[in-house]
Computed example of a mutant assay.
Amino acid sequence: MDFGLDAEQAAVVDTVRRFVTRELYPYEDEVERVGEVRPELVAQIRSRALAAGLYAANMPAELGGGGLDPVTMTLVERELGAASYALQFLVARPSNILQACAGDQRDRYLLPAITGERHDCLAMTEPGAGSDVRSMSTRAVRDGSDYVIDGTKHFISNADKSDFVILFAATGVESTSHGQKKLISAFLVDLDTPGLTVTRGPSSVSHRGYHHSELAFEGCRVPAAALLGEEHHGFDLMGQWLGASRLTVAANSVGRARRVLELATAWAAQRVQFGEPIGRFQGVSFPLADMATELEAAELLTLQAAWKLGEGRMTDRDAAMAKLFAAEALGRITDRAVQIYGGMGLMDELPIERFWRDARVERIWDGTSEIQRHIISRSMLRPLGA
């Protein structure tokens, strides 16, 4: 494997880095202060991302997307990850699940998501079903030519800035050697559908301005044509999305960790105590060395998983290892950065405390660190019959 950038990849990285610096960084303090991204700023970032050719970079070129290969897309995610999540998410990468759209769904959901006319969110998590997805209670019952949906979803990211939801709901049960399991199906549901209520969820300490919502379905009726893919096979679609999303979390974590390390290194070189730059003291220089080493390891794990994805060989274990190590490395790197900055690291005058807060969620969403460890260890033990 050679992860040296070719000319095209170098140009893509340069384009994204300049976009992040010019179009996203200047608004981070505002978003932190007010906890919102102004509607006009949302429109501005989206339109400029479209103009720069950065919109839907993860989608196939034949559908109008950027058509980037997995390694190049991972480099894009790394660069975007350095910026405030509420801002970088507006440079949309529609869910790859939408590629399962068929017939009229392509014109109503897939293609408008790629052109920036419509925006998606994904609803999987429930108050009683987080890591244990199969225990979801939201259900969709067939009624003639429709499905009737009842249940509640929460922690639904970006629903307040979306037009439709990719919903996962139970549509039946099957008997297995481990007992009964719920059968899951996926649906495309417009957020203004009668019977669906969207409310803002509680505030989070991580990623201010990037909100999550609660979706309540009460007798919400959708046509059978809203079914995405095959009935009872939504879990398969979910698995395809989770691998890609975990790789995205890993790449974003690497990008943010790099920015934190650059700031901490500059601080250590400039801050003087006892007549010396604090970086000359081993208590500061050795943590910097550890941070740099962990960052390199996280990036290599992430790029390796992306390379395997491009080769059609990425496993759940590969994505889990990248997500686990990169997310936890980000946590350690931001924590050490706070220590290097000392008291100033906790002040909102500087961005370090924000990076520290933001890093915490990466070990939870898109599969907790514990779930990633379960995936990895299961891949080791199952071949031995354990």
Rank of each mutant, 00 (worst) to 15 (best):
M124Q: 11
H232V: 15
I340Y: 01
R46I: 15
S206P: 10
N158E: 12
R78H: 08
D6W: 06
D366C: 15
S213A: 11
A268M: 05
M291N: 06
S369R: 13
D318P: 03
A49P: 08
V165R: 03
Q339G: 11
M321L: 13
I114R: 03
A11M: 06
L309A: 07
A297L: 15
L300S: 12
R22D: 14
P194R: 00
G345D: 08
T152W: 02
A225H: 07
I352Y: 04
Q282Y: 15
L381T: 13
G144Q: 01
A169I: 02
T138P: 02
L242Y: 06
V133L: 03
A337P: 03
V173I: 14
D69H: 08
G179Q: 05
V173N: 13
I166E: 01
A319I: 09
T293W: 12
A250T: 06
E353Y: 15
M291K: 05
Y210T: 03
L261M: 09
T152Q: 07
A386F: 15
L98D: 00
L54F: 04
D69E: 13
E174P: 09
A244D: 11
G331A: 08
A43L: 11
G35S: 07
P277K: 00
R48F: 11
E349M: 13
G310Y: 02
V76I: 07
T171E: 05
I376F: 00
Q99A: 09
W356F: 10
M321F: 10
E276C: 12
H119T: 13
D146C: 09
L301N: 06
G103M: 06
T171M: 05
H119D: 08
S253W: 08
V254P: 02
Y341T: 04
P112L: 02
A52T: 06
G279H: 02
W365N: 11
D348I: 15
K323L: 06
T248A: 12
G103H: 05
G385W: 07
G239M: 07
L41H: 05
F281C: 08
Q99E: 13
E276R: 11
D120I: 10
A140M: 02
R360T: 14
S157K: 04
L300Q: 11
T248W: 09
A292P: 09
W267K: 10
L191E: 02
Q372T: 15
A320L: 04
Y109I: 03
R259V: 12
L111P: 01
D160V: 12
R317Q: 09
Q304D: 10
D190V: 01
Y341F: 11
T293H: 12
A102F: 12
A257Y: 06
R360M: 11
R118F: 04
T21K: 14
V20Y: 00
G144Y: 04
V205Y: 13
V284A: 00
E370V: 15
G144D: 03
S175Q: 14
L54A: 01
L41D: 02
Q372I: 14
L167R: 01
L50D: 11
T152D: 05
D348W: 14
M238S: 08
A216L: 13
F281Y: 12
I375D: 03
N252L: 09
L237Q: 00
